[in-house]
Amino acid sequence: MLDHSNLNYPPRDGWDRAPWNRWSFRHVREMVPTAEVWRGREAPSRFTREPRQLDAIRYRGENGEKSIGQFLDESFTDGFIVLHKGAIVLERYMNGMNERTLHLSQSVGKSLIGILVGIYQARGWIDIASPITRYLPELAATAYAGATVSQILDMQSGVAFDETYTDPFSDIAKIDVACQWRPRPNDGRDWPETCWDVVLSLKKRAFDHGAQFSYRSIETDVLAFALERIAGRRLPDIVSRDLWQPLGAEESANYTVDAAGYALADGGFNATLRDYARFGEMLTNDGLFNGRQIVPAEWVQACRVAEHDKFTGDYRIATPEGAYRRQFWLEDHRRPVLMCRGVFGQLIYSDPAYAFTAVKLSSWPDFRNNTLLKETLAALNALKRAVNV
């Protein structure tokens, strides 16, 4: 019999941070309300398997030479999978995770929204050259007035938004409260009730629309609200119908939701390791997966072409030649690698030049850690060279 008196669950405030995240990223449904992203009734798409002994592959990282096995052991890994030419060559579960475990993706989920916008544009439902107010007219009273959908996709709107994760009063902290990840403080402040309230509260600009890249999670939520308005559906239903079912997902996924039922597009998506790999392999194959052209090849290819000169500041620490486009990170603007990245070490890595896809799910102790990110990229670059020998 399970003795509940001995169970040490994370606190309601701080469950998503170290040390609790080693457990909570695999148990989000036990911490906050969620909505299902149904996988549908069709059989899941199948991977071929060509397992290879890759743990002994060595590479030079931030602290000298080490093996892939050491890297996985030392980098707070929960799940790791590598595909080469569509076949699984390495699959590893750690820290209590298994093939059916849903794991929080944090900002990896932003890239799902970028792909959905591409699907909707192909259907003629959205025009990314149009102002966002065409789809969300309420934003005419905010700093988003005059910004195009394309600028928001590239995180180049000029809207002021403080993304400081460790500041309890920053704009991203307001999102944490609005989306029910943190309890509402009883401090007399006017805390937002919902994520939509946060969007409507943004009245200031930090720079002109289109002038520069500045990473702000709220941009993804604005896009998701537009998709919901266009489709007349909630985001979990949109992702199910237009992405998860076409991919042939193995398991239903879920989103955390706010008090109004809005699914947190910027970081509340949870899925299995293999299903993240399905999404990544679709990117590697220019939008083609499970016998379907899920998003036009031209859209994925355009995601790989970005303005490096607008990618400035500490964004260049881990990826000095990097860039950002349509809700994706580029490892190097001169090469076709796309990355879906989330805090605490979530990563989907897609390199069509090597027919290589990898997913790493982690529970780092830090929101951002450039040393661990550079270590991860060094390991992945060594792996993709090794599997192509």
Rank of each mutant, 00 (worst) to 15 (best):
M1S: 14
L2Y: 06
H4D: 10
N6G: 08
P11T: 05
W15T: 09
W20R: 05
R22N: 11
R22W: 10
R26L: 07
H27V: 05
H27C: 04
H27Q: 10
R29W: 00
E30I: 02
M31F: 05
V32T: 14
E36F: 12
E36K: 15
W38V: 14
G40I: 14
E42L: 14
A43T: 13
R46C: 12
P51N: 02
R52F: 04
Q53S: 14
D55H: 15
I57K: 00
I57G: 00
E62M: 15
N63K: 13
E65P: 01
F71Q: 15
D78R: 02
G79F: 00
V82C: 02
H84N: 12
G86S: 07
A87P: 02
Y93K: 04
M94N: 04
N95P: 03
G96V: 07
M97A: 15
T101H: 11
L104R: 11
Q106C: 12
Q106N: 13
S107G: 12
G109E: 03
G109M: 14
L116K: 11
V117E: 01
G118M: 07
I119V: 11
A122S: 14
I126Y: 08
D127H: 10
I128Y: 03
I128S: 12
Y135N: 11
L136S: 06
L139M: 13
T142E: 09
T142Y: 13
A145Q: 15
G146D: 08
A147C: 01
L153Q: 06
D154P: 10
V159L: 10
F161M: 02
D162W: 11
T164R: 12
T166H: 07
I175Q: 10
P183Q: 02
R189A: 03
D190W: 07
T194Q: 12
D197Y: 04
L200R: 13
A206R: 09
F207Q: 08
F213Q: 01
S217G: 12
T220I: 13
L223H: 03
L227V: 09
R229Y: 06
G232Y: 11
G232K: 11
P236T: 08
V239T: 00
V239G: 06
R241G: 00
D242E: 15
L243R: 01
Q245P: 05
P246I: 04
L247N: 13
G248Q: 11
E250H: 15
A253V: 14
A259K: 15
A265P: 14
D266K: 14
F269N: 03
A271N: 05
Y276K: 08
Y276S: 05
A277F: 09
G280T: 08
G280I: 08
E281N: 10
D286F: 06
L288T: 08
Q293M: 11
A297N: 10
A306D: 01
G313W: 12
G313F: 11
D314V: 11
R316E: 08
A323Q: 09
A323H: 05
R326K: 14
F328R: 04
L330V: 07
E331P: 07
E331K: 13
V337S: 03
V337Y: 02
L338Q: 03
G342L: 05
V343K: 04
V343D: 05
F344N: 00
G345S: 06
Y349H: 13
A353Q: 15
Y354R: 12
K360E: 03
W364T: 00
R368N: 08
N370M: 02
T376H: 06
T376Y: 10
L380C: 12
N381L: 09
A382W: 03
A382D: 06
